[in-house]
């Protein structure tokens, strides 16, 4: 196994462990613990940290892909796909369906151009 592959696997295992820890650790806590009550009430910075990071991740994913679409003369294609994604999300809160609609719109626009 190359060093790069080793690092990749270490990162994957660490991500798996931290994901499982955030899902499973609350089940280990004492039912009357203050930390558990605080988490269950959804108070504190934790409540905003997740959505804020997701918004940031969306921004850092979309920004370079928009730049790439501009360079490749694909901006109308990209925008039509983005519009289709948002249109589905407005009518139905289903991430899978929205992604499917966006990819389909991208492909259709690409074929039409």
């Amino acid at each position: 196994m190359s060093s790069d592959a080793g690092h990749l696997w270490a990162a994957i295992v660490a991500m798996a462990a931290s994901t499982y820890a955030t899902r499973g650790l609350p089940f280990l806590a004492d039912r009357d613990s203050r930390a558990l009550s605080l988490l269950a009430s959804g108070a504190g910075p934790l409540k905003m940290l997740g959505p804020a990071l997701l918004a940031g991740l969306a921004a850092v994913t979309v920004t370079p892909s928009v730049a790439h679409a501009c360079e490749a003369n694909r901006l109308p294609v990209y925008l039509s796909a983005l519009f289709a994604t948002l249109l589905v999300l407005r009518s139905r809160p289903d991430a899978g369906l929205a992604v499917l609609a966006g990819v389909a719109a991208y492909w259709l626009s690409l074929t039409a151009l």
């Binding site: 918004a55 991740l57 969306a58 994913t61 979309v62 983005l82 929205a98 992604v99 966006g102």
Partner: peptide
């Protein structure tokens, strides 16, 4: 990008 837009 669609997935991140949707989750957001």
């Amino acid at each position: 990008p669609a997935l991140f837009v949707a989750i957001t």
